[in-house]
């Protein structure tokens, strides 16, 4: 029995506050907020139903069912080639499924809807994907410019976001080649957040950074996710990083979901031998994480 089919059952039998970060974030706000949060929880931000995708006859994803509730930080993890980036690309219609459907906020993602839907999704890739011919400011203001925002509105939003992603002042007027790796990712994040999207799609956003900067950014990102309360779908190959961010981890193996759940579930009750091995392999890292968590 796959985890997905058990999901409502699981929610009913556990205390929401312990498993639902949205609720835990709002737990001091009183019952009204709690109810709203529960309602939001049941609204599916992203829903993949029986999605199959192959490249050149090789199936990359097979019969994937996955739904991400609003406000959740979900991290897709798996070895390289397991289809995790494809899953992310399916979400914003950069690739379309061979079979099955992808829905964002109830709207099917198709060739004709993708363009409009993408403006409600922020997307950051490993190297940031910043356009080298534009300054940081130019990159961030590209879409607002196209959508006819006033310069005052763009500027205000930019200042707000620069503060949020802790981008050093002055970096905005530099070209990507003049920025450090960490700054580039911060700018990429600003660009992704500029239109205030409902969901953030992050494809190994910290993958290309050296360890110190990576650690710094991990901390900042975590704070950011909490502050924004947005739905996040993130891809990484690092289990400890996944544990650090995830409300829920989706473990992919060869195009199928091996296990889904919070980090603790993966550690305490691995669904398969593969999961157990994966956890053991990163044990030392995970140990520290578990100690911090307890």
């Amino acid at each position: 029995m796959s985890y997905t089919t058990r999901e409502p059952f699981r929610v009913a039998h556990r205390k929401p506050a312990t498993i639902d970060p949205v609720l835990s974030r709002n737990k001091f706000r009183g019952r009204v907020h709690e109810i709203q949060a529960i309602n939001r929880y049941y609204r599916r931000m992203l829903k993949l139903s029986r999605v199959t995708k192959s490249y050149d006859g090789v199936a990359v994803l097979r019969d994937i069912d996955l739904s991400i509730p609003e406000g959740q930080v979900a991290v897709i993890i798996g070895a390289s080639g397991c289809g995790k980036s494809t899953l992310l690309r399916l979400a914003n219609g950069l690739v379309l499924p061979d079979r099955g459907t992808v829905e964002l906020m109830g709207t099917p993602v198709t060739a004709s809807t993708a363009l409009a839907l993408r403006r409600r999704m922020g997307y950051v890739i490993q190297e940031g994907g910043l356009f080298p011919h534009l300054t940081a400011r130019g990159n961030v203001a590209l879409m607002p410019g196209r959508l006819g925002w006033s310069s005052a509105r763009t500027e205000a939003r930019m200042i707000e976001l620069a503060e949020l992603v802790r981008l050093p002042t002055g970096a905005l007027d530099r070209y990507p080649s003049q920025l450090s790796g960490g700054e580039r990712q911060r700018v990429a994040l600003m660009r992704a957040l500029m239109l205030d999207p409902e969901i953030l799609l992050l494809d190994e956003p910290l993958g290309a950074l050296d360890p110190l900067i990576r650690y710094e950014l991990q901390t900042d990102l975590k704070t950011l996710f909490t502050a924004l309360g947005k739905t996040v779908l993130m891809v990484t190959h690092d289990l400890s990083e996944a544990g650090h961010f995830a409300d829920e981890i989706v473990l992919l193996r060869e195009g199928s979901i091996e296990q889904r759940g919070p980090m603790t579930a993966l550690i305490d009750s691995p669904a398969t031998e593969y999961v157990a091995r994966l956890v053991r392999a990163q044990r030392s890292l995970v140990d520290g994480l578990v100690q911090r968590a307890t």
Binding site: N92, L115, Y123, I125, G129, F131, R191, L201
Partner: peptide
């Protein structure tokens, strides 16, 4: 990746070409 980023921003084809 740059083209993908442009697409992911929601730039239409012609705007992607031009910008």
């Amino acid at each position: 990746p740059l083209l993908e980023s442009a697409d992911a921003l929601g730039l239409p084809r012609f705007a992607r070409l031009r910008l």
